[in-house]
Simulated scan of single mutants.
Amino acid sequence: MYLHLRRICLLLAVTSSSSPALAADAGHGADLAKRWCASCHVVANGQTQASADVPSFAAVARRPDFNPEKLAFFLLDPHPKMPNFPLSRTEAGDIAAYIGSLRP
């Protein structure tokens, strides 16, 4: 029950801001992704090394159910397959915006 309530609160916190001043920054998300995510994921064109068993950011962006808000929520919620990075809501939103910018 507590985990379910925590997820709802995180989702509301991520999606409640619609102010343009608080809009996600895909450029900052790209910088964060290159620093924190590139050891496992291919995060940008030209990257030559990553783990074979994880999707590239471009592949994540191409998923038919891709949603930046849900992805930001996912990044904030600890899960066993990824390291627990101490991302702020803004940073998670920025990374999700960067991934969204890779959609064809």
Rank of each mutant, 00 (worst) to 15 (best):
M1Y: 10
Y2T: 13
Y2P: 07
H4G: 12
L5S: 14
L5D: 14
R6G: 05
R7M: 13
R7N: 15
C9M: 15
C9G: 15
L10Q: 11
L10Y: 12
L10E: 11
L10M: 15
L10C: 12
A13L: 13
A13K: 06
V14L: 03
S16W: 11
S16Y: 11
S17G: 13
S17A: 15
S18H: 14
A21Y: 08
A24E: 02
A24D: 03
A26F: 04
A26K: 05
A26R: 06
G27E: 10
G27D: 10
H28E: 11
H28I: 11
G29N: 02
G29W: 02
A30W: 02
D31G: 14
D31M: 14
L32E: 00
A33P: 00
K34G: 07
K34V: 12
R35M: 09
W36N: 08
C37F: 08
C40T: 03
C40F: 09
C40G: 06
H41S: 02
V42Y: 07
V42H: 08
V43I: 08
V43M: 05
V43Y: 00
A44S: 11
N45K: 15
G46N: 08
G46V: 08
Q47P: 04
Q47M: 11
Q47S: 07
T48D: 01
T48V: 12
S51M: 13
D53M: 14
P55Q: 09
F57G: 01
F57I: 01
A58W: 04
A59T: 12
V60N: 04
V60W: 07
V60R: 01
A61T: 06
A61K: 03
R63L: 12
D65A: 09
D65H: 07
D65S: 08
F66C: 07
F66P: 01
N67E: 11
P68I: 06
P68H: 05
E69R: 12
E69T: 14
K70L: 15
K70D: 11
K70Q: 15
L71W: 01
A72T: 05
F73E: 10
F73A: 12
F74H: 11
L76Y: 02
L76A: 00
H79W: 09
H79T: 06
H79K: 12
P80W: 08
K81T: 12
N84S: 10
F85V: 12
P86D: 05
S88F: 00
S88G: 03
R89E: 02
A92S: 07
A92M: 07
D94G: 04
D94H: 00
A96E: 01
A97E: 00
Y98K: 03
Y98T: 00
I99W: 02
I99D: 01
S101G: 08
S101Y: 05
R103M: 07
P104G: 12
